[in-house]
Nucleic acid binder design. Structure first.
Lengths: 333, 333
DNA sequence: CACACCTATAGATAATCACCTATAGTGCAT
DNA sequence: ATGCACTATAGGTGATTATCTATAGGTGTG
């Protein structure tokens, strides 16, 4: 048997003929002409090297080999029908895999979206990577993930972005801070205080510093801690003040107060970022669609800023142009 | 997914590439050039409609869809490897099916051959049809069986024949018959006796009658019975005399004697007959080969007359020229 | 005997396949 | 920076495929 010249099409034809018990009838069912089917059978029998059908009492019946081929063909075609179902699920975003990279601060919010999502799509494997902005930028450049969450997209030349959530940065102080009762505070009044800052690669720090620079201000004493949590607890413990994302604060925060500093909060927005040069996995696309539709149910309305429709519209959609090789892995920038 | 353009070859290539983890390596293993493999993969991915491979950290790894396709391909290729084994068994005559049609008298001997054969080839289904010569001739003309056993082939234009067994016809009488002790009897001395004859379509009767005609003799009273057994028992019971195949007589036959009639026994030979225009099933061929090799062990040496080598040599052998449609069933003669 | 229905064969054609060679881009290691 | 190994692309070729129309021959029925 020469397997090289075996086509699924030929098997389909053979199955149809055995099922129909007649070449002409099979041809009708397959929307082919009878000579076409005759010839396909001939080629199939040549490929197999055995007669496959015989004319038994007027009816066309498979030979031994033909019957076994029929069985094998049905199994095989069934297996590929299953594979096709699998593909549909994959394409519908119902199954598959994607990875998403978050800047640290976003980890306080994204589970609110990912939780309901993975309950709705239990067959999708999601991998979440978390780090500070600089680390996430590295991942972005290496194209290691399907989706990224940044406040500011790295370079829109290679990426598409869609805002989905406000991320206001506020000044926090310990509960009993002397200025806590004031209606309005100037940032300059706080410069003598010690500020707890995130590490240099952090987005929160970067935003804060560039805001300070706009205001023409310079901090006095600072203390650096590479974690929002640590800073929050440090502020509560009286180690100093900080500018943090509001999302970092728990709903109730009896040990902390937000200072009404003029010019704050620093308004920024988290955005989903996808690379233009990387074909988005169906599952990731499904997640974006889910986020677009269910964001309102998952986060507090005051943070809502859903501009994902625009992002989805600009995505390639169901474009099958990609090469068979999806780009991933390290690429020199 | 467009299953029409799916070839087993493409699946083989995909399996090889996933297995090798590299296109170039797969190309080497498949004895193809690298661009060929690249292109096959491209076509495969087009047929599937999804990227199948991705470049993960320098290694080439399947995507979700690619992995599932790999699994499906392995199963499917495995299934066809099994089918190929099945074909080999079929071709080796180790399995399959054939039918053989015997003239009545031969049923006394053929089980001696068929028994050991089906013990040696338990996977072969044998169907045996039995009837008188005329009935078997009808089956032969309709091409209903793979093999036939006749004393005289119907028409060698459409058939090949090979003798394998002597079939002597002898005159039998009841034990106490007056001529039983004689050394030599002329047939003419018996014409007054009543003869028990087989029915008109029978080969035994035809041989006997044409022998009588050669001798210029005519029978007196006759009695017709459509069974060798009935005739044998009838002779023993004194109903008359008969000319029967020696094979019909049991090894010990205390109630019967063979009369030493001059000119008897009528010598004839059973032959295996195969149609020239019908492709012989592998199993039937296997049976002929078995008969050729084991006949001596299965029948009494005095009946042996094995000319099957000649028949086997004239058979088409392993000629794969047949159309895919094996001829069988009713055909106008 | 004619008609309807089957299957086989011949011959045509546009498309595709299964390969190849040659060449260019990319990433990695030296 | 250079060279090596990998992959992609372009372009070519002969073989094969998938389909058709037209036709011929066998079989069974009224």
């Amino acid at each position: 048997m020469n397997i090289r010249h075996l086509t699924f099409r030929l098997l389909q034809v053979h199955v149809a003929v055995v099922g129909a018990g007649s070449i002409s009838e099979a041809a009708r069912r397959l929307h082919l002409t009878q000579p076409t089917v005759s010839q396909q059978l001939k080629r199939l029998a040549e490929a197999v090297g055995e007669p496959l059908l015989e004319n038994r009492q007027g009816r066309l019946a498979p030979t031994e080999a033909g019957l076994e081929l029929y069985r094998a063909s049905r199994e095989v075609l069934g297996r590929f029908a299953d594979f096709d179902d699998y593909l549909s699920a994959l394409r519908g975003g119902e199954r598959g895999r994607f990875s998403i990279a978050l800047v640290n601060t976003a980890q306080y919010v994204l589970p609110r979206l990912l939780g309901p999502y993975s309950r709705a799509f239990p067959e999708v494997d999601v991998t979440v990577h978390i780090g500070n902005r600089r680390q996430m930028l590295t991942r972005f450049e290496r194209q290691e993930d399907d989706l990224y969450v940044f406040s500011h997209p790295p370079s829109l030349a290679h990426a598409l972005a869609g805002r989905f959530l406000r991320n206001p940065l506020v000044a926090v102080a310990p509960k009993g801070h002397p200025l806590a009762g004031r209606e309005r505070i100037a940032m300059s009044e706080l410069l003598e205080e010690r500020f707890l800052l995130r590490e240099p690669g952090s987005a929160t720090r970067m935003l804060f510093e560039s805001w300070l620079q706009e205001q023409g201000l310079t901090l006095g004493a600072t203390l650096q801690m590479a974690s929002n949590e640590a800073i929050r607890v440090g502020v509560a413990a009286g180690m100093g003040l900080a500018v943090l994302s509001e999302h970092v604060l728990p709903p109730e925060h009896p040990d902390l107060v937000i200072l009404p500093v003029a010019g704050l909060p620093i308004e920024s927005h988290w955005q989903f970022i996808v690379r233009r040069d990387r074909r988005l996995s169906h599952a990731a696309l499904g997640f974006l669609r889910f986020a677009e539709g269910h964001l309102g149910e998952c986060v507090e309305p005051r943070f809502l800023s859903n501009e994902l429709v625009g992002l989805l519209a600009r995505l390639p959609g169901s474009d099958p142009n990609g090469t068979y090789l999806r780009n991933r892995g390290s690429v020199t920038p």
